[in-house]
Nucleic acid binder design. Sequence first.
DNA 1: GAAAGAAATGAATGGAAATTCAATTCTTGT
DNA 2: ACAAGAATTGAATTTCCATTCATTTCTTTC
Lengths: 207, 207
Amino acid sequence: MAYRRTDRVEEQLQDKRNRILQAVRTVVGEVGFRGAQVVTVAEAAGVATGTVYRHFPSKGDLFAEALTLNAGHEIEVVTAVARSEGAAMARLADAIRTFALRAIRAPRLAWAMIAEPAEPEVDAARLVSRRAFADVFEGLIADGIAEGDFPPQNARLAAAGLIGALTEGLIGPLAQDADSQPDAEALARDITAFCLQAVSARPFKES
Amino acid sequence: MAYRRTDRVEEQLQDKRNRILQAVRTVVGEVGFRGAQVVTVAEAAGVATGTVYRHFPSKGDLFAEALTLNAGHEIEVVTAVARSEGAAMARLADAIRTFALRAIRAPRLAWAMIAEPAEPEVDAARLVSRRAFADVFEGLIADGIAEGDFPPQNARLAAAGLIGALTEGLIGPLAQDADSQPDAEALARDITAFCLQAVSARPFKES
DNA sequence: GAAAGAAATGAATGGAAATTCAATTCTTGT
DNA sequence: ACAAGAATTGAATTTCCATTCATTTCTTTC
């Protein structure tokens, strides 16, 4: 009995684990899931390949956890916006715009998070995160209906529709190679307008 | 000179090619692109692996052609609906409902065609098909605006939004385990309602 | 029915990338 | 300083599949 895991070691271990997760984010943000190999991630984290497997059971698990972590952060941001003061309609608009703008600013990463081919574990994690986003939107839609600003509707389906419209609207532009920084604001504005109209509107002709 | 490719042989060859393409559809409809290996497809087509490579240069090419073929058929169907008699709004509703119903009836295949990660060649082919779908919707939206039934809007983005809302609305139910055959009509109706409202509406509070 | 050629076969090959593990380096407590 | 045990390393191994190709089977023509 001459070795014991001290707090310092524990801390370093945790730190290394975090560095690996962070490295996934960095690498995926540069080359996407397709180009993100375990060796590359290990290099980026400054550890050997084998070390990765000391902290995560498999590539799929590692990448899934990295996605969950990152998506979780985004959900926090959007949730914060959704909880701010004001009418539900305004908060919904802000939430959508925030989501869109952040995606546009890190297009490669956003594309990977939203739609890029990956391991089954990653796909599963993606579904979960997607639902978490939908829940935030669903809450806002329900609020809007309660406040009388939105017509009664299937809030769950509408939230899914919003996510779909949002991601689809982003994916086209995101798939382009060049940085379309100048149009970021405009794109975000248009997408927000469409999404907002989708839930907040009444038939055009009638009334 | 003792052999010549007769019409009969030519026909059989073509037939075999088609059977392989059809097999891709079948296999992908069961296990998606992820599970669709060349060996599996060959088996489903009743040919040897090597034969596949006599007809197609690579897996990616084969799968891309299969996707294009299948999507082309769907586009034809939706286009036919879009070209029928009547107001743009009604035609758009019909087109969306048709798309949704057909997707619901073959969920795994639909998901693969619409969104499942695959070889680069397949992704490229999908982009083309997706744009074709979007074009149909975009045309209908433009018609609706011209007819005064829809408010002026970015028809291109709106079309993308529709596709997104449609597919996202389908994916949730599609991810469930059981066959929700009984609810197919209801789901299609709800999705159609949401999509139609998204493009055909004016702000709820005003006016 | 035999020769010439084409098409089909499917086991073997190859390559790419995940995963392992024997050897090495680092930490701790005495 | 040293022994006991952990953590780390990265080259070697394994795995998974697309792709190939020597061999076999089928078609045609004479």
